[in-house]
Computed example of a mutant assay.
Amino acid sequence: MQLHDVSKGIQRRKKRKRIGRGVGSGHGKTSSKGHKGHSSRQGFKLSPLFEGGQMPLARRVPKRGFVNGAFKKHYVILNLDDLEAVFTEAGLVDEDALRAKGLVKGYNHDGIKVLGDGALTKALEVHATKFSESAAAKIQAAGGKVVVVAYVNQRGPAAAAARA
């Protein structure tokens, strides 16, 4: 073997299988799909959950209990050290101010919850959906104000009606 033979036949991208191009290609006639049946038909897609006709695992396993996923609330979590780092002087902290500072992104949540991790030295008036007890105590101890507001999603028909 010579050094120039090492890379012979090695290609950067594997060539695709050219099916249905005659008997001599080895992939002619049935195009490697066998004879008859649903898997030989045009547009056939096999579901990754299909188990050959036997009862699928998702239906074999018993289901118990109550799943609260459809009703669960998802909050944007903020800690006091986040507010301390971003807001330089005392003032109003609401959803618009948090979005402007990049602490709240997107609209796929049910409100903002402030937690008490960290220390707060500025007198901030914080408007949020929920507060932990420690966060509310630390905000008030710093001379700030805690205001609980109902969350209104700023996107969609409800938001348009609220803005009008």
Score class of each variant (00 low, 15 high):
M1H: 12
Q2I: 11
L3P: 06
V6M: 11
S7R: 15
K8T: 12
G9M: 05
I10V: 08
R12L: 13
R16H: 09
K17M: 01
K17V: 02
I19G: 07
R21D: 09
G22Q: 04
S25C: 03
S25N: 01
G26S: 06
G26W: 06
K29M: 15
T30E: 13
K36C: 13
G37H: 04
H38L: 13
S40R: 13
R41G: 01
G43K: 13
F44C: 09
K45Y: 07
S47R: 06
L49C: 04
G52E: 08
G52M: 14
G53F: 05
M55Q: 08
M55F: 05
P56M: 00
P56W: 02
L57S: 09
A58P: 03
R59S: 10
P62T: 13
P62E: 12
K63S: 07
K63I: 14
K63E: 07
K63C: 03
F66S: 09
V67T: 11
V67Y: 09
N68M: 04
F71S: 13
F71G: 05
K73H: 08
H74V: 11
H74K: 12
V76L: 04
V76Q: 03
I77M: 15
L78H: 01
N79P: 01
N79Q: 15
L80W: 07
L80F: 05
D81A: 08
D82L: 00
L83E: 01
A85T: 10
F87Q: 05
E89P: 06
E89Y: 11
G91E: 02
L92W: 09
E95S: 06
E95C: 05
D96N: 11
R99P: 00
R99G: 00
A100G: 04
A100I: 10
K101F: 14
V104R: 12
V104S: 11
K105C: 03
H109S: 10
H109L: 15
G111L: 08
V114Y: 01
V114C: 00
L115G: 05
L115K: 07
L115R: 11
G116V: 07
D117F: 14
G118N: 05
K122Q: 12
V126I: 13
A128L: 15
K130P: 00
K130C: 05
F131V: 00
S132N: 08
S132D: 15
A135P: 11
A135Q: 12
A136E: 06
A136C: 00
A137P: 00
A137M: 02
I139T: 04
A141I: 01
A142W: 02
A142K: 06
G144E: 03
A150M: 13
Y151Q: 14
N153G: 04
Q154P: 14
Q154Y: 01
R155H: 07
G156M: 02
P157W: 10
P157G: 10
A160V: 15
A161R: 05
A161Q: 04
A162W: 14
A164Q: 13
